[in-house]
Every structure is written in structure tokens, then in C-alpha cells.
């Protein structure tokens, strides 16, 4: 998973939210169906897929899916 499109596919498959490119930069509370429980599913999927730890405090600062993606590929 390297691109934002790959990441959005992961979001669709792992947590079942119908997100597309138009949701990458909107505030998380405007992503359809988004809540903290989805964050748990997404973070565990990311850590499993990338094999790298992701810092939750950093993720909690993220304001969009795009920013979470950046943290995932940086970590």
C-alpha cells in the first residue's frame, strides 16, 4: 500500500465504508459512517499490512483520511 488510492481501497475492504477519492481530504466527521470503532479496524489493518507500528496520538491529530495515509506510509 503506497498510494492514497491503495489506502482508500483498504478503507473500503477492511471497514466497509463506501469512500472514494472525494473523501480523502474532507474532515473525518464528514466521511460517511466514520467513527472511532472504524479507526480501530483501520489501524489494526494498517499495522498488519505494513508491519510497522503506527502512533495513535499522531493519528488522533489527523484531520482527514489523507493525513492518516501519510502517517501510515511515513511510519
Amino acid at each position: 500500500m503506497t498510494t492514497i488510492d491503495d489506502f482508500l481501497v483498504l478503507v473500503r475492504h477492511e471497514i466497509g465504508l463506501p469512500v472514494g477519492p472525494e473523501h480523502a481530504d474532507v474532515p473525518l466527521d464528514q466521511v460517511p459512517g466514520w467513527d472511532s470503532m472504524h479507526l480501530l479496524a483501520l489501524l489494526t489493518a494498517l499495522e498488519r499490512q505494513t508491519g510497522r507500528s503506527i502512533s495513535l496520538p499522531d493519528v488522533l491529530e489527523a484531520e482527514s483520511l489523507h493525513e492518516i495515509h501519510e502517517l501510515a506510509v511515513q511510519s
Binding site: 472511532s36 479507526l39 480501530l40 489494526t44 502512533s55 495513535l56
Partner: peptide, 13 residues
């Protein structure tokens, strides 16, 4: 066998 971020999420939420 859960990742470390799982524990962090549980502690936070």
C-alpha cells in the same frame, strides 16, 4: 496476538 496500536486504542477510547 494483537498489534500495539490496538492496546493504545482501547486505552484511549
Amino acid at each position: 496476538d494483537l498489534p500495539s496500536v490496538w492496546g493504545q486504542w482501547v486505552e484511549s477510547f
